[in-house]
Amino acid sequence: MTVLRSDLAFFAGLAILAGFGLSVGSLFGTYWVIVALNFAMWIALTQSWALFSGLTGYISLGNVVFYGLGAYTVAVSFKVLPLWVAVPMGGLVAAVFALMIAVPALRVRGPYFVILTFGISELVKYSILNLETYLGKSSRLLFGAPSAEAVLYTMIALAVASSVLMRLVKSSTFGRGLVAIQGDETSAETVGIPVTRFKVMGFTLSAFIPGMVGGLMALRSTYFEVLQVFNPFISFTIVTMAIIGGSNDARGPILGAAFLVFLSELLWSSAPRLYMILLGAFLIAFVLLAPSGLVGLLRKYGEGHSK
């Protein structure tokens, strides 16, 4: 019964947040549309990261590759495919790419996996950069892209979808299998969890939404520039948000994204270096002092009160 009640509270909270995001433009004006869009984007990206990396402990430092591939798909097919096809196609391309690299990449564990995912995303970045130079396109302009509001509504849908997905997966057999993989792969295998299949499925699933997010952001910025959409800083921010929020609970990425979006609103335009320094300091502080993130602190606080 308590599980049900907490589920209810989570979905209600999510609905309120989404409803607020949808109405932010008419309530506060255009500037807040951009803030809400950013917030929704980071929720969708971090939630998708947590779905695989948070549950399995395979830390991916290259999730920007999914985002970038989605953006590239939309940019290349712009004015060729209708957008309602192109954006999901971006997600599909990212997921297929994840599926392709999953089997060789997931054979390596721990730190090798971390730096491998980073290396793969950089490799793809420079490969596409050279391809674009070869094609004679240093950047692509996307004229006539939909309005910021339209992008925001779709992005909120993705943020909600990724949060619901994370919540559902976590309490499913599949999700418990992923958590077991984090504990000990050999014993997970012994008790009948199809370890390789689950890892490949989880990795592929975690690529789909970031691909669509990338496609949407390409429309939002109205131009496509390889170094920008494959910027490793995006991967790093995702990991930092997940660690600060807490990555094994669907509430974590929302809290982490909220925290850093707030901080960057405060500092990014006036003191970008200071923002980065604080980002590093918060990351260190959370790893050392609160390894389960804001969600962990919240949980501890809740327990203290119910006693």
Binding site: G57, I59, G110, F236, R273, I277, G280, I284
Partner: peptide, 26 residues
Amino acid sequence: SVEQLEANSLLLFFGVSVILQNTMAL
């Protein structure tokens, strides 16, 4: 656990790296 140590050290050093780069840039 060695794996926990490696994961934590990665995140800590990432924080250190960001701080060093941006402090020097500042």
